[in-house]
């Protein structure tokens, strides 16, 4: 009895703490190493403007990655975020550009649309028990169609900086004289902190982890898992809505039919950052770091002479690698195959 107390908990406790902490440190080192690598190889990469553009392109990916972390921790996935963010941006932009609505209302519409699609996803998964990847695949296709329908198939140019309503672009990039400040990064950090708090210190977050850990036990503890699923997917959808604002602010125009593939960058980032495909494990900080691995790769590749199309291939490979690492980590983490069997 007392022997067990001395042995088992004490030793394995440490290793787990090390592993979780270690994961973030490792990913951070990868980020630094990648950045260093590109800096050394390409002189053009070592410029403030490059760093700015890495950050610019990272905002919307980071936002959807933070959002998708929540469904991933429940053991599900949200594939609708990529085409979704384009759809929301098209709808919001259409209202602003062609209907003359104020920009701030357009932005709210973006976020609201995201929350609604998130709610539908959560309902399909939590209440109707559809497999998450299929349910969200359907909403992915539907948002793609809806975006085109709502914008009547046109590309939408959100107001440019300097014109009326163009102020919203300064949310992410502030010009002070000749200096451009990546203001968006500040918001990302704030949102990371906020969502970390939600995940680790609120009931919703706690129950999301609980569901990912053992759905049946969570239900038996008297928790209404349906609501928790809906919450997880609404968070994901809302962040896709926020991402749509970031996307509109960075790019001159938004085109219908694009957006497929963004979700993989988001999911890939989350998994690199230590979110487990089997659910129950993950941190927002890890996700943030993971996304930067992908973003630096994406921005860096053209600097070493690979054309933009390689990005898709690289994203695919990075995603598979991340999942393979996650799987090997899981095998090591579980005590024996039997416990792994039992969990399923």
């Amino acid at each position: 009895m007392s022997r067990q107390i001395q042995n088992i908990p004490a030793s394995s406790n440490k290793s787990i703490v090390q592993r979780l902490g270690g994961q973030n440190v490792v990913v951070f080192l990868i980020v630094v190493a990648l950045f260093g690598f590109f800096c050394i190889v390409s002189p053009n990469f070592r410029r403030y403007s490059t760093i700015l553009s890495i950050l610019d392109y990272s905002y919307y990916i980071t936002l959807i990655a933070i959002g998708v972390t929540f469904p991933l921790i429940t053991g599900g996935v949200d594939l609708s975020i990529g085409t979704g963010l384009i759809c929301y941006s098209l709808i919001g932009g259409y209202l602003v550009v062609y209907q003359g609505w104020p920009v701030w209302i357009g932005m709210i519409v973006c976020v609201l649309c995201g929350a609604i699609i998130g709610f539908i996803n959560g309902f399909l998964v939590g209440t109707m028990n559809l497999p998450p990847f299929l349910a969200t695949l359907c909403t992915m296709m539907m948002t793609r169609g809806l975006g085109s329908i709502c914008s009547t198939g046109l590309g939408i140019p959100w107001p440019t900086a300097g014109t009326e309503g163009g102020w919203f672009r300064t949310i992410f990039k502030l010009n002070i004289g000749d200096m451009k400040l990546p203001l968006g990064f500040l918001w990302i950090l704030l949102l990371t902190a906020l969502m970390s708090f939600v995940l680790n210190h609120t009931k919703v977050g706690r129950y999301i982890i609980a569901i990912g850990s053992n759905k049946e036990a969570t239900r038996l503890s008297g928790i209404n898992t349906k609501y928790i699923y809906i919450a997880a997917y609404v968070i994901s959808g809302t962040f896709a809505g926020l991402a749509s604002i970031a996307y509109s602010a960075i790019f001159a125009s938004v085109y219908p039919g694009t957006g497929a593939g963004f979700e993989l960058e988001g999911i890939g980032g989350a998994i690199i950052g230590g979110v487990s495909m089997t659910g129950g494990v993950g941190s927002i900080t890890g996700t943030l770091l993971g996304v930067f691995v992908i973003c630096i790769l994406k921005t860096g590749l053209p600097f070493i002479g690979l054309q933009a199309n390689w990005q898709q291939i690289i994203t695919g490979i990075v995603l598979i690698t991340a999942v393979l690492i996650d799987l090997s980590r899981n095998v090591k983490g579980t005590k024996s195959i039997t416990t792994a069997f039992k969990k399923r």
Partner: peptide, 23 residues
């Protein structure tokens, strides 16, 4: 019915956590 990824205390009080505001 344990939730392996949570701590002992978190398991014991699952569903009726003590709150400090929303935390």
């Amino acid at each position: 019915n344990m939730l392996g990824h949570l701590t002992v205390a978190q398991n014991i009080f699952i569903g009726r956590e003590f709150m400090k505001g929303i935390r």
